[in-house]
Design a protein around this nucleic acid. Sequence first.
DNA 1: GCTGAGAGGTTGCTCAGCGT
DNA 2: ACGCTGAGCAACCTCTCAGC
Length: 302
Amino acid sequence: MDPKSNGEWTASEIMMMKSIMAWHNTSSSYTSNMNNKHTNIVDELQAWFPWKEKRQVTDLYANLMVEMMPTNNNQCAASSSNPVTHNFAMSVEDPAIDNINVLRSFDTEEMGDMRQAKEAPRKQPAPRKEKQFWTPDEHRQFLCGLQVYGRGNWKNISKFFVTTRTPVQISSHAQKYFHRQQNSAKKQRYSINDVGLHEGNPLLIFAGGTYNPDDYGIPSKLGCCYTAQIRGAGASTAFKHMPSPVANSSSAVALAMKGGRRQIPWTGDQHANFFADEWILSVDMNSVLLWSSILIRCMTTY
DNA sequence: GCTGAGAGGTTGCTCAGCGT
DNA sequence: ACGCTGAGCAACCTCTCAGC
């Protein structure tokens, strides 16, 4: 059933709203007037979900506010019968850790296990680590991160793109990658570093185009192209709704197939210029909301 | 099957940046 | 000035694969 018609919230919509709320919580743009803050956030949420009634948006916003409050701070949560009129009370241990962490809970089990193993304390000087070869997916995520954060920012690339690798591992991989790039003229055998950003499964791409400060367009500097590997029935729904403000600006959607690209017009009134400066983030559906969070930050930061 | 070149992961050293 | 942290770099090691 179409969630638009019955007013129910889909999981992706809820997570989108959480992401937007979390970002606003860490934003410093609201420090004085909290009523204005909540009003503005609700207005913005309404813009993101125009197919919802404002009452629905407000209700979910209030419920999520309560939900997102720290469980060890009952006093704070209990003191607010109407959270919308109160201050945000989300726990943010480190301001540098932004809303993206909210979406961390959507990591796959595998990713969680890997991270747990990575974080396990080393009791003894262990024998040489077992080699963990880079997969094409990891390398594509690395390339995406490289485009977004640039060379040297391995910490953020590790944090937001190649979550299965430590900054040191990424740095090492980059070292080999750039070395191979330098020697590209020489005859070389196939390596993981030959994997291109556009290779792989069919990709659903949300592409941002030229910078237009008057609308929600993404600066070409950040170029934000958005991709998600189509792995499930929910994919199109999740994305169809997600970037509506973007779709109304200089953006479009294209379906990139391996070995070439063909654009598919997005249903709606969006424009179809751009592709001058596109960035592609290859993700699986478990990370879709993570990328959407990044997109939100791109749009609100630049 | 053997061998050497190259790919790729890990580790340690160096140095720059930053805070105290 | 000193210590800490993180990035860059090179060395070392293991493994793979093309060429014979």
